[in-house]
Design a protein around this nucleic acid. Structure first.
Length: 395
DNA sequence: AGGTTAAGCGCG
DNA sequence: AAAGCGCGCTTAACCT
């Protein structure tokens, strides 16, 4: 994939002033939180140290551990601290500190140092034979995990900018893995929902809760979304219960209801497990294989882990196949048409370009055409294109 | 000094 | 007994 070298060489421009401001702001907040945490604890301690957090919370403050880490130590992860925060002010302070520390150390402090002296840009490396599912992997720096899920984190995305006279254009596949599940399973309800252009989580909620699509409330849609994503990952009723804070029996009812309404998906799960077990591998729609050496392990946990990977791989892997083909097509078109637009990043289901203003209209049109037309599946491929002065506004 | 592992968390 | 897939990066803790 020569296009990967093109993307690496093109690189992305950063607003270094903004990153410096964010670093200063995050740093000041961290110092303030640290002070308050030390007051609450009645002693100074390192808020980055799981061991010291354990000592303060579970020994000194006497809070009860929520769960344990694989090595048996009481866990201080986000889920645990969020629960402990209901009874004590300290865990929330630690969580706030951690969030800021992550953003500062990984992004706002680090990225400016990665700017190339000659080009003034950041150049990632794409690993083409790293992820077992066929995805690319981005490293040094990783540009595939730039924050977006929180308002605080999104401000970092604003630092990914286009030069004067250009804009950032982002084009991403909408619900690509669920569409692939529809294609592979040929489940009637799923095919119909996508063909009709329905909001898939809303449609799923209507099926599971037995109400009209228009009557689905936000809570029901949120449940359906968790179930839809969970299915792609091979989640169990136990996992669903934990995710939605439900009784296990209730979670099991939702799953039963789902598979009753989408029998094609249930069949896909069954057939995929069976094929993986018999052949020792699973395949994407385009035939790339993922070998599963642990699918016949006598260790039940390892075997079940391999089964979940088997269920996920055809969807994640086919999505990877599709965007790889699309990436090649897009670069081919840019080259043939002598466009000045640059492909600068790939983030699993998204392509990011730096586009001179004069080319905006045609690039938007052609990106959509090339990405939606890259393959003919049993459901339409939908691409959402955004334009902005930076990556955040383009998304 | 330099490498590895554990814990944790950013993204799709 | 575990329980949700795929990655890469940072800090702490521990090792040689």
């Amino acid at each position: 994939m020569a296009v990967l070298y093109t993307m690496e060489r093109n690189g992305v421009l950063l607003d270094q002033k903004l990153l410096a401001e964010l670093s200063a702001e995050f740093g000041a907040k961290m110092i303030d939180i640290e002070k308050r945490a030390h007051e609450q604890a009645g002693q100074p301690f390192n808020l980055s140290s799981p061991k010291q957090i354990q000592e303060v919370l579970f020994e000194k403050q006497g809070l009860k551990p929520v769960k344990k880490t694989p090595t048996g130590a009481p866990s201080t992860d986000e889920e645990s601290l969020a629960e402990l925060a209901l009874d004590h002010p300290l865990p929330q302070l630690i969580l706030d500190y951690r969030g800021l520390a992550k953003l500062k150390s990984t992004y706002t402090d680090k990225l400016p140092g990665m700017v190339n002296r000659n080009t003034g840009r950041v150049h990632t490396s794409y690993g083409q034979a790293t992820a077992v599912t066929g995805r690319l992997a981005s490293s040094d720096p990783n540009l595939q995990n730039i924050p977006i899920r929180t308002a605080e984190g999104r401000r970092i995305r604003e630092a990914f900018i286009a030069p004067p006279g250009s804009h950032i254009v982002s084009a991403d596949y909408s619900q690509i893995e669920l569409r692939i599940m529809a294609h592979i399973s040929r489940d009637e309800s799923l095919l119909r929902a996508f063909a009709a252009g329905e909001d898939i989580h809303r449609a799923t909620a209507a099926e599971i809760f037995g109400v009209d699509v228009r009557a689905v409330d936000n809570e029901q849609r949120r449940y359906a979304k968790v179930i839809n994503f969970g299915l792609i990952y091979g989640m169990s009723a136990f996992g669903l219960a934990r995710q939605l804070n439900l009784e296990r029996a209730a979670a099991q009812q939702y799953m039963d209801r789902y598979f009753q309404r989408y029998p094609g998906v249930a069949e896909y799960m069954r057939v995929t497990r069976e094929q993986a077990h018999q052949q020792g591998y699973v395949e994407t729609v385009f035939g790339r294989r993922l070998w599963l050496p642990e699918i016949r392990s006598s260790n039940g946990n390892r075997r079940q882990g391999a089964e979940r990977a088997a269920i996920n791989a055809p969807m994640q892997g086919t999505a990877a196949d599709l965007i790889k083909m699309a990436t090649i097509q897009v670069q081919k078109w840019l080259t043939e048409q002598n466009m000045k637009s640059l492909l600068i990043m790939q983030v699993h289901d998204e392509l990011v370009l730096e586009v001179p203003d004069a080319e905006l209209a045609v690039v938007k049109t052609e990106l959509t055409r090339l990405m939606t037309g890259v393959a003919e599946l049993a459901v339409p491929l939908l691409v959402e294109v955004g334009v902005g002065p930076n990556w955040d506004k383009a998304h």
